[in-house]
Design a protein around this nucleic acid. Structure first.
Lengths: 245, 245
DNA sequence: ACAAAAGTGTTACCTCTACACCCATGA
DNA sequence: TCATGGGTGTAGAGGTAACACTTTTGT
């Protein structure tokens, strides 16, 4: 949970009360699968980037805007995967602390201390294009790989877990790999993405054939890396179709 | 969208504003796949059974309670599948009419006319056990098969569509058939469920083998129907495990 | 005996896997 | 020419699908 860039504008009447969103933003730096985590000013509290929904925008618009603001790129693959509505999922003391540390009056922003239901989305982005931007209440937003995630607020660790599960379940059904890679990539790079997401190694030759069999790749010129070996082909995905379901 | 049984209790302060749920309740009568649709008093408006979330109950609890109240049975397979948050998804005029026709003052229940985000669930139940119960605002709740669905309010047709898609996508991954059948059933009955859900016929022998290969069925005594043919075995599902993901 | 539906055996086919082999590249 | 990693050919295993055959039941 998190706020708009212009925190002074967090007026109750502009937003739908009790409704928040959280986003699990995945990026792949060529080696590791990472997610964006932000830290609130002077509190030591870590959380997923999130926000609230304005009365005059749809849920999808709100989330899209939030993710674009944090990453600096638009045209992002975004997918809603679950809504979290447990009774335990608000921590008014932590929220109060966050507001105070940002010089905001908790009394004047009482609606933020109330119970929230959060709609969770995951995003897949091309790591290279991103320049993460913290919002007004947070002083840092950084990439963390799964092995070194800091402890997250409230139920955010559960949200991350569920995001990863959903991503895994969808990986074969949809062509998700494309959203984590630059436009052109080698088969080895594609395999790396798949292995990091699934958390297990694949056989090189079987992977290659499986991918080619999907008929979704275009083969381009070779990439001469300077390595003392055969130059691999570059590939790109045929269409911008992200969902084949 | 819909209300609690005791509509006089629909006090704003008891509920989370802007948040509703809708449920697509599937049942199988041995021949057709049907869903429960309710009709509001004197309005000709059809809608999915739904409700609101009390401040002191979790989202899942609220939905579960709502579905149990309408069907009269508990221990129902329930799965959240999507949250709908479009700007178009409120129709204050229709809601006003519903309130008026039920002798409620729209002014006193103004929060119900506001914009709502709805978390949608689907439920799978054993048709035979159900005795559908309309809530206070509705005068009927009835089974409709997909071919004869009445026009539904707001985005409820989209919700039904998405529920069916999700059910189809999950059918193989999870053992969902079990929730739509009585405890013991024949292979032909199980195949009927699958065919109705997927909307396509399966080969009898292939289906039988595929099901037996899952190793999830127990074979019981035969059922002598009086038909002039070999009596089929009865089967039941091995475990109450509903999710193998 | 016969018709109807249930259950199973068999064969052909297809797919996937493993392994080997060849290819291209720069040192 | 050697080491390294990329691409493809092939044979065997395993799984799937189609079809026929057998079994069981009530008329």
């Amino acid at each position: 949970m998190n706020t708009d860039k212009h925190s002074q504008n967090l007026k109750k009447e502009d937003y739908l009360s009790h409704i928040a969103f959280d986003s699990v933003i995945f990026g792949f730096n060529g080696k590791d699968l990472k997610i964006l985590v932000l830290q609130y000013h002077n509190t030591g509290l870590f959380a997923l980037p999130g926000g609230f929904v304005r009365r005059n925008e749809s849920l999808d618009e709100a989330v899209s805007k939030g993710v674009v603001e944090r990453t600096g790129i638009d045209n992002i693959y975004l997918e809603q995967f679950q809504t979290f509505g447990g009774l335990d999922r608000f921590d008014s003391k932590a929220m109060e602390r966050i507001l105070k540390m940002n010089g905001l009056d908790p009394k004047a922003n009482e609606w933020l201390l109330d119970r929230f239901i959060s709609i969770a989305y995951y995003a897949l982005i091309n790591f290279e294009e991103v320049n993460p931007v913290p919002d007004a209440l947070a002083d840092s937003i950084e990439w963390y790989s799964f092995e070194e995630l800091p402890p997250l607020m409230m139920d955010h660790e559960e949200i991350v877990q569920k995001a990863l599960e959903t991503l895994r379940a969808n990986l074969d059904r949809k062509l998700l790999g494309m959203n984590l890679l630059p436009e052109k990539f080698t088969m080895r790079e594609l395999q790396n993405v798949y292995e990091k997401i699934m958390g297990e190694p694949f056989k090189r030759t079987a992977f290659q054939r499986k991918m080619l069999a999907t008929n979704a790749l275009i083969r381009h010129e070779k990439r001469f890396t300077g390595g003392a070996h055969r130059a691999p082909y570059l590939y790109s995905f045929k269409t911008m179709v992200k969902d084949r379901s």
